[in-house]
Design a protein around this nucleic acid. Structure first.
Lengths: 239, 239
DNA sequence: CGATTACTTGAACCGCTTCAAGTATCGTGG
DNA sequence: CCACGATACTTGAAGCGGTTCAAGTAATCG
C-alpha cells in the first residue's frame, strides 16, 4: 500500500527488494481522517510516526493572535512526523487539509530496522533532510520573494513533488487547498492570495479552478518563481 | 577541541565515553576562515562536512535580484552542512559571519561510524532534525510575527543556543552580526531592522551595542516574541 | 430552499521599503 | 598623528505591497 513512499525513495537511490519489503512491513493501522482533523496535536509526544497514503496534510503552528502558519505541506508518500522518532516532543501539529489516508510506523520498529540496516536508516534520515531542505527554500520565499514569486514557487514545487508520486497528468494536478490554506502557507492574507492568484491567471501562467490546477506556461512560471529543483534532491545516487 | 558539539549533544541525550571518543576522532583539518569567506559555495558537492568550532556562520541563498536570504545561523558546536552527508548536492552556501574556526568530518568516516554505532547515527540524525526544527520556527516568525516579534524571537533563540555552548555570561553574549546580516536573516530591510532594534531598546528589553547584546528584560522579550524553547529540544532523554 | 462556506471586489490604512543624506567609527597610508 | 576612505549605523520622507474591514457573489450541501 505505501507505494508512494517507495516511489519517493527510489527517485533518490536504488532500493533492493529486501529493503522494500522491510519498509512495507513497517506500516500498520491504516485509517482515514476527514478534512480538518488534527492528525497530530501541537506539542504532542507519540510512539509512532504517520505516513500519508492519500490526501494533503500540513504542519502548522498557531500563534496567540490566532494566526496560523503552515510550515510544511505533505503529499502522498510523505512522512508527517518522522522527525518525531528522535525529537520525541513535536513543537507543531499536523492537520488534514483534505480527507487523508494514513498508516503508522511504530518507533520501536523504526528503531529495530534502522539498527539492523544502516542503509535503510540513511534513506529515512535522507527523507527528513529533504523535508528540511524544503523548509529552507520556503524561508527564502517568505523572506525575499514577492507574493507572486512565492505563490508561483509553491505551485512549481507542488507540481514537481506530485509528479514524483504520479499524481499529475500532463501539467494538471489536484490540489485540495482552499485560498485560506494558501494564505497560511504563504504568510499572506486571504484577500491578497486571491489577488495574486488572479494575477497569475491573467498572465496566462496557470488555471486554478476549485481543486484542479493546470499549468499553462511552465517556463514562465519557473521564471517568475526562480524555481530550481535542486533542493528536492531528485537525482538517484548512492546514499 | 570540538567540545561544543559534545555540549550540544549531551544536552539532549547521555553520551558514553567511547562514543565521545569516536565523535572527537571524526574531526580533522582545523582551519580558520575570515569574516565574509564562503565556507561552502552555493550548489556545491563535497566529500566532508564542517563543524563550527568558533565564530558565527550562516546558510544563505541569493536570488537573481541580488537579495540574500539567510536560512540558518550557526553558533559554535553546530555542523554547517551535516545534511550534505546524505543530500550530496547542497542548494545553499554557507558564509562566515565572523572569523571562524572549523574542522572537517569526512563523509567516509561518517558512514563508517554511523554504520558501526546506531546510537551515534541517531544522535547525528537528531542534530539535523533540530536544525530543521529551527527552520520551521523561523517560518512561523517570517509568516506571522511582526518585525518586532521576529527580532525578539531571534534574540531569545540565539541566547538560548549560546547558553548551551557556554557562550553567555548572565544575560549578556557576543553576537557578531551586522544590521545588514540581521536584515538578511529576518527578511527585512536594513533601515527597518535599525528601527526595530531601537524600538526594543526604548522598551528597555535589550541593549545591543556593537557586537555585545544584553537582555535587560527576559520575560518581556519572551512575551513579545512568544518564545517557547520546545523546538530546540533541550531535554536530555534516550534517543 | 435556506444556511453555510468559499471566493471575489472595493476602499482605507499601515508596516515596511526605498531613496537619499548625514553621523560615527575605525583602519590605513602619508 | 592626522587625513582619508571605507564601513556601519542612523534619520527623514515618500511610496508601495500587503492588510483590514466590509460587503457582495457563487458554489455546496443537508
Amino acid at each position: 500500500m505505501p507505494n508512494t513512499l517507495i516511489l519517493q525513495l527510489s527517485r533518490r537511490d536504488k532500493i533492493p527488494a529486501d529493503e522494500r519489503r522491510e519498509l512495507l512491513d513497517l506500516f500498520a493501522n491504516e485509517r482515514v481522517a476527514p478534512t480538518g482533523q488534527e492528525l497530530i496535536p501541537e506539542g504532542s509526544r507519540s510512539s509512532f510516526s504517520l505516513l500519508l497514503l492519500d490526501g494533503f496534510a500540513a504542519r502548522f503552528k498557531t500563534l496567540s493572535t490566532g494566526a496560523r502558519q503552515i510550515t510544511g505541506v505533505h503529499v502522498p508518500g510523505d512522512f508527517l512526523d518522522l522527525h518525531g522518532f528522535l525529537l520525541k516532543t513535536l513543537a507543531y501539529g499536523v492537520v488534514a487539509l483534505s480527507d487523508c489516508r494514513v498508516m503508522q510506523a511504530d518507533h520501536e520498529n523504526l528503531r529495530r530496522i534502522t539498527r539492523a540496516s544502516p542503509h535503510l536508516a540513511r534513506l529515512l534520515w535522507m527523507d527528513t533532510l529533504i523535508d528540511a531542505s524544503i523548509s529552507r527554500e520556503w524561508l527564502a520565499s517568505m523572506g525575499r520573494r514577492s507574493a507572486e514569486g512565492h505563490l508561483a514557487h509553491l505551485i512549481c514545487e507542488l507540481f514537481t513533488r506530485l509528479e514524483v508520486v504520479q499524481q499529475t497528468s500532463g501539467y494538471s494536478f489536484r490540489v485540495p487547498l482552499k485560498q485560506a490554506d494558501l494564505a497560511d502557507i504563504l504568510g499572506l492574507s486571504v484577500v491578497h492570495v486571491n489577488r495574486t492568484l488572479q494575477s497569475l491567471r491573467k498572465q496566462g501562467l496557470i488555471i486554478w479552478e476549485g481543486m484542479r490546477v493546470h499549468i499553462e506556461n511552465w517556463d514562465g512560471l519557473v521564471k517568475i518563481a526562480e524555481f530550481d529543483p535542486t533542493y528536492l534532491c531528485l537525482r538517484s545516487e548512492p546514499r
